[in-house]
Design a protein around this nucleic acid. Structure first.
Lengths: 142, 142
DNA sequence: TTAATTTAGGATAATTTTGTCCGAAATAAA
DNA sequence: TTTATTTCGGACAAAATTATCCTAAATTAA
């Protein structure tokens, strides 16, 4: 469903969100450890998320990554920043073009499902996921 | 969402279904041409589907591939034969284990969406897709 | 039996994705 | 200023996926 890069990215973002009270920064090593992702690869993904404006980063001692508006960051924005639009706009059967006027055989059946995915990702924000994680209702490492 | 192999496989199966009246066989070259897939790679995928019992194949002149129960072949059975269970059982965030008793932060939100996907793939059968294609309501090449 | 046709399957190649390594740049503190 | 720390970014490596090639095996027909 999501690429590995995206899975790493989402997990990292959720962890960062749990730690980002009052502009506090989290270091890459911490993030990788607590989100179960390889450090160097996570750095790449966080770079993309930072470039997309979903994350603040600062170099040097006392530097690190931080999120200050977790309530406004949707899962969709993260997925889009990493995996692009393929999940939201691409044809289920891989046709280069596919729309209601000249649909692939799965187009209509797929549409409803995709709308559901889209709604879910748009309406889910980092803050609620971070809250669940902090409260012990959910987990990042298994 | 689906792997390329799976996209090729579904397209090929739909085309074969449109041609499979009364035990008629379709040749690989035909299938590849009409479903817009690379021939040799499609051969691999069809091999897997044949091994899974979703498809009959016969060697030699007058040989080829055929489907005789398109009404009973669901999209899900095709996806499972090629991509396995990852889409239906894997954790959205890539955790090795993830269930309601110790869920990842996305587990519950993801569940509803996945159920929708599962239902759609289970309730959609080759026959109806082939019918749509034959009638000109949908297309395989673009 | 021989020849032609067609799938099966293994080896190999190309591409993409995933992941690592390392030096440069920035920043803060001593 | 120097040193330590940390992200940034490019090059590189490994693994998975996608795709091709070629020979063998099966089957049909001449």
């Amino acid at each position: 469903m999501f690429s590995k890069a995206c899975e790493h990215g989402i997990r990292a973002m959720i962890y960062i969100a749990t730690q980002s009270t009052a502009g506090r920064r989290v270091k890459l090593g911490d993030i990788a450890r607590h989100s179960g992702s390889p450090e160097a690869f996570t750095a790449k993904v966080l770079g993309a998320l930072s470039k997309a404006g979903l994350l603040e980063s600062l170099k040097g001692p006392a530097g690190g990554f931080g999120i200050d508006n977790a309530a406004k960051i949707s899962l969709k924005s993260i997925v889009q920043a990493i995996d692009g639009d393929r999940l939201f706009k691409g044809c289920a059967l891989g046709l280069l073009e596919c729309d209601a006027s000249k649909p692939c055989p799965m187009h209509h059946k797929f549409g409803a499902m995709r709308d559901g995915l889209n709604d879910m990702l748009e309406s889910t924000h980092l803050e609620e996921l971070a809250t669940g994680l902090k409260s012990g209702a959910s987990f990042l490492l298994r």
